[in-house]
Every structure is written in C-alpha cells, then in structure tokens.
Write a protein that binds this DNA or RNA. Structure first.
Lengths: 254, 254
DNA sequence: GCAAAAGTGTTGTAATTACACCCATGT
DNA sequence: ACATGGGTGTAATTACAACACTTTTGC
C-alpha cells in the first residue's frame, strides 16, 4: 500500500494545507481558571501569546500528536482530560501560508505544577494578554465546552485532585464556571448522581477552627454523562416571582 | 506576505496531509431518518457507500468548501443546518495516502427533494449498507449530535418544513430520536420554551375525519439554546417506583 | 351516532435552589 | 464562649411524563 510513496505526487498542492494541532489547556490555579500560553518570539505576531501545539506527524493519530507536543514543548504530561474541539480552516487565518489547525481542550488537575519553559505562562482567562491568530476564538470555544460538560457530566474529576473537600471542589467549579457555586447544592447534585463518594476521612480544620470537612473523591475518573440534561445553572436571582417560566434562551448564530 | 510562495517549501511533507471535507446529511423521509450516501465505483473500497465531500480549496473557508461539494456533486443546496462535527486523522484511515477529513453534520428539511445523481441515494440510518473508511463512525457521531441538540435547542426547525401540525412535527422528532415522542408533551415543551408559535391556520382533516389540526411554525429558524439543560428524555417505562432517583449514567470512554 | 384525530386538564413526581438552622473544632 | 467553617433539614419552584378526558371533524 505504500508503493505509491515513491511516485511524484499529483497536482494537488491546493488540497494539501499545512496542518497544526493546538491545545487550550486549562488549570484552576489560585482560585481562577487559567490557560497555558506561549509568547511568540518571532514574526508573524511576535510578542503575542499563542496556544501550544505543533505540526502533525504522519505516524501518529491526531490526539497522540497534541499529547507529544504538550509533553515535549511545555512539559505538560499529566492531562486529566483531552478532547477535540474544532478545526479552523479560514484561508487567511495564518498570513504566511495556508494552514489548518485542529484544536483540543485539555485539562490539568489543580494539584500538579508542570515545569514550564521560560516563554510559557499560565494566564487567568479573564485577563488574557493579546492572543495570536485565531487562538482567542479557540479559548472561548474551550471555555464554553468546559462549562457545558461540567454541568451534565462528572468532568469535575479532571479539575480537582484525587481527594478534596466539598469546599475545595466548589471553588474549582466556581472558577471554571465563572459564578459562585454553593457547596451545599453542589454536594447534593454530585452525590445524588453518584459522581462523588466520601472516603471516610476528615480534613483537619485550619488555623481558624471550624468543623472538620469530610474528604471525597470522584467515583470514576472517566467521563460519564451523569445527567443527559443537566444542571448547576447560575443563580437566577432577579424576580423569582412573575408567571415566569422565562428561562433564558441564548441565540447562537450557526 | 506571499513573497515566500516562490521559495521551495521546507521539508515538511510529513506535516502536510491531504485534507478532505465530508458531510453526514440527514433528512426525515418516509417517517425515518435517512443519510445521503454515495456508492464508490472504484477502489479502494469499491462498492461501499461513502459520505459525500471532497478536497479543500485554498481560497475557501472549510464550511464553504463542504457546501460547494454538496451543491455540485449531489445537488444539495438547501441545507437548513450545517455544523462541524470532528476531524479524523488516524494515519491509516485511508489505505492509499495520508488524508485527514473534517466531517460536518448537515440537515435538509423534509419538504425538499434534491435531484440526486445515479450513484447517490438516501439510506435509513437503521439499515445502512456497508460504509467506506471511517464513515460509519461519522454517522454515529452525527446521530448523537443531532439527538442531543434536538433536546436542548430549537433545531427541529431544520428537520421540518416551515409550517407543520404538531402531529407532523412529532413524527419528525420520533424519526430523528429513534423513540416515540408524544404530541401532547412535545407541544407543551416547545410552546413553553417559545420555540414554536401557532400561525392561526387550521389544516383540513383527511379522509378519515378527525379534528382539524392547527398549523405551527418555529419562532426562529436560527439555532437557539432553548433549554441549556434539556428534555425529551425517552419514556422511562420500567418501574417508576423505587426510591429511584436512578437516572441512567452513560459512560463515555474519552 | 361513531370512529378518528387533535387538543386540554390534571395528577404525580424528580430535580433543584434557597435558606434557616445545627454541629464540630480552635483559640 | 464564641467565632469559624462544615453540614443537614426543608420549603418553594420548576419542568416534566402520563393519562384521562373533551372537542371537532368525516362518514
């Protein structure tokens, strides 16, 4: 089947763009959701911040390629989640040459801290520096996907350490969702769905005292759709009154 | 910026696979969900049925490319929905050469009937012929995506004609979801969400008589997330009893 | 009047938020 | 004892599924 490899390629240059893989890697750090970005040292877009990634290799599946680039270029080896997001193919997304990019969403649990190269840094998603190419779009896409999956799956396992208290877990969810998540309700939702289970241990209270928190873990560290149709909606403060089954309806234009 | 185009390319052949776009186009016909497939006349995979598509063109965005191929190759011009699904990049997905494919989900409303070329045909999704390459996977992905979006968005607009009765609409939903959808409840769900509105007209009853049905249309023909966390779950016949907040939990392995 | 198809009323229940309250610990 | 967090009880709310029942038509 490889016998054709020696023959000259047919005139399909127009059909063979360069192809890159990118990853939007999130981690909850210091109470906020942060993305791993890398500052371009050269034109085009010198000085702007880009998502890590690299070119394809014919010998690998796409997912393995992005894993390899993350491991070798930014020393991220412990992804707790990796999922394909989209492929971007706008003809002029890269001013230099025709290049497609397949973007991934990656998650790193909050208790690991990869050793990063000098040009690479975590940035809070709410205070991003100028981003390169269409990478800002990718980050938005990734946030949206993460938000959705936290609601209807057990994906929280990929943000948190193996063991945690409910207060800690709620802080992770709050950071990722962008709004305050009540410990009380988070616990009940995840427990009812069987997503989290108590280990039986208790965490020692801190300096200030307080009742010792019980320690939990996720029942499984594989993605499970715990609720085909989910929850953890943002608090709907204003006017609970009114005949109002007025649930917000977001318009998406494609 | 194009001045480099004349210089010889660096040795990145390994980074430049061929790239195709494919579409899994669904339509509800004769009460079932059907996919548009095309029978291969040549090896590899001669005789097997493939999703329509073609190569990229440097001058177009990806979405425009798949639209062009659908219009010119299978005469499908009236897509009511088109959405990117995934990019497949397994090194040996095509035995002949290294080729990636970006797959789309397309929908055609049930009241149009494109004139198809001889080698192209609609196939009920529950009785597919042998499919080519990894196209079976794409069809599965597409069904799943359609199913999900019908639940939490107004995507039904893309399956049905502009105007319809509730009975007709329920038939479309049933075909796409694969289980019986009650007219009564479908109506209430979509009406409560503001997704459908009555036109005021009535449809004449058929031969057999019966009360005339009122005619409805979708309030908008753009995608709207009507319920961030949705509904239309399949009927849960067995044992409604039991302390049972035992809602099914599907495990997804990646 | 009777069958057929459409539409309404009503009940039961799951899932969830909000919030008041109780508990265990350190100082 | 009291401040500080953690945890529980519970009412209010919403969104549904199910199903019995009513309405409007053709024959």
């Amino acid at each position: 089947m490889h016998d054709k490899a020696t023959r000259p390629l047919p005139p399909i240059a127009e059909a063979a763009p360069l192809h890159a893989v990118l990853a939007c890697v999130f981690q909850v750090r210091e109470g906020t959701l942060q993305v791993l970005l890398w500052q371009r040292a050269r034109d085009p877009q010198r000085g702007r911040w880009a998502l890590p990634g690299g070119r394809l290799d014919r010998r690998e599946p796409l997912e393995q390629t992005i894993r390899r680039h993350l491991a070798t270029k930014v020393d991220v080896r412990e992804l707790s989640w990796l999922e394909q997001l989209a492929t971007l193919g706008d003809p002029d997304r890269n001013p230099r040459h025709w290049e497609l990019a397949t973007a991934y969403l990656g998650l790193v649990p909050s208790n690991v801290d990869p050793r990063l190269p000098a040009d690479t840094r975590w940035h809070p998603v709410d205070a991003l520096p100028p981003t390169a190419f269409d990478h800002g779009t990718v980050i938005d896409l990734a946030r949206e996907r993460l938000r959705a999956k936290l609601s209807y799956t057990n994906l929280g396992f990929a943000l948190a350490p193996a063991e945690f208290t409910i207060a800690e877990l709620a802080a992770h969810y709050s950071a990722a969702l962008g709004y305050r998540v009540s410990q009380t309700n988070l616990r009940r939702v995840l427990e009812r769905r069987g997503a989290i289970v108590p280990t039986g241990e208790l965490r020692r209270p801190g300096r200030e005292g307080g009742r010792p928190a019980s320690v939990w873990r996720f029942a499984s560290r594989k993605l499970a759709v715990t609720d085909p149709f989910a929850v953890l909606r943002p608090p709907q403060r204003p006017s609970r009154r009114a005949n109002g089954y007025r649930r917000s309806s977001t318009t998406v234009d494609r």
